[in-house]
């Protein structure tokens, strides 16, 4: 690691003020940031530890949902009985990610802001527009098995690694932030992430010093919730493809559906196309497949990751079948 100044945050305001310098970073759980600092992919000169701040509570919101403090650990969130009963898809998604040890440290805010696991982002001897703007994208013509198939650009095909965020996308979560000047704002989770375009190093809409305070879950949508993750080993691996579904069945028809994919884009990929295809559709594998096809109409593979397109469709089919009780 490069040398840095370590600061324990005294208050929200002082933390945000400290972190407005371009080479400063907030640190909470540290499970992603410290890994990247050891490899000098991240080289902050100033770390602002938000551990002393509150932000570790899960509270009922006025609208009947939950407000999750940014420092709530993944474990605490997954184990919270309110989440388990009302938002089981979120519990499942969190528990599908990483390991128990990492979930005990990783936080809600940090999880959303985790950086890609693209092998070429991690190998500092290789071109990577995200790590070194303008150097090129080694993944495009390389071993891109884990990379994205939708929503990305010719400058970067990195996939977002979060499971938690996929469930949050399906739940219409909102991110509440505060900036150094005290201004707060609420960002729909889908709008938190910037498409890579030709600036893949800028990953979110957050400004320097802007801190995620909390994530708000609206009241739980009706229907069955399910998170399904497919990976290269049975546990402790990033998704090849994952899917969060919330689906309501009425007789043999789908009345309402929400679909979000993980592992296929730069962000948790909410699919309006799949949802539109599902509403009113018969509860059959054939219509689930059609929804998957709709979701992936604009997807394209880059060689080694071509399989993600059929796999995403099939995983959606499996999840919807399980959630609706189709044998």
């Amino acid at each position: 690691m490069k040398p840095f100044r370590y600061e324990r945050a005294g208050s929200l305001a002082s933390a945000c003020a400290s972190a407005t310098e371009p080479t400063a970073k907030f640190i909470a759980g540290g499970t992603n940031l410290l890994d990247l600092m050891k490899l000098q992919i991240e080289t902050p000169t100033h770390l602002v530890d938000i551990g002393p701040l509150p932000l570790a509570e899960i509270e009922e919101s006025a609208e009947g949902g939950l407000r999750i403090g940014a420092r709530v650990t993944n474990s605490a969130l997954a184990a919270d009985m309110r989440v388990r009963r009302r938002y089981p898809v979120l519990s499942q998604a969190i528990l599908a990610g990483a390991s128990a040890q990492l979930r005990n440290k990783a936080t809600t805010g940090g999880n959303l802001l985790q950086r890609t696991r693209c092998s070429y982002f991690y190998d500092t001897t290789k071109p990577c527009n995200k790590r070194m703007p303008g150097s090129g994208c080694a993944a495009l013509g390389g071993l891109n098995r884990m990379n994205a198939v939708i929503g990305v650009s010719s400058d970067c095909i990195a996939a977002h690694g979060s499971d938690m965020a996929v469930a949050m996308a399906a739940l219409d979560a909102r991110v509440e932030t505060v900036a150094a000047d005290g201004v707060t704002r609420t960002i729909p989770i889908d709008a938190l992430y910037r498409p890579p375009g030709n600036t893949p190093h800028i990953e979110t809409v957050l400004a320097p010093g802007e801190l995620i305070q909390s994530v708000v879950l609206p009241p739980p949508p009706p229907g069955q919730q399910l998170y399904r993750k497919v990976r290269d080993r049975a546990s402790f691996a990033f998704a090849l493809v994952s899917v969060a579904v919330v689906v309501t069945r009425e007789d043999d028809r789908v009345r309402a559906a929400r679909v979000a994919f993980g592992g296929i884009s730069y962000k948790p990929w909410r699919s309006a196309e799949a949802e539109a295809a599902l509403i009113g559709a018969t509860v059959t594998r054939a219509s689930f497949d059609a929804a998957g096809r709709a979701a992936l109409r604009d997807a394209r593979g880059y060689g080694y990751n071509d399989f993600k397109i059929p796999l995403a469709r099939r995983t959606l089919r499996a999840a919807l079948a399980d959630a609706t009780g189709v044998i």
Partner: peptide, 8 residues
Amino acid sequence: RINSCLTL
């Protein structure tokens, strides 16, 4: 339980 390598 935590990974002591990923915390300062």
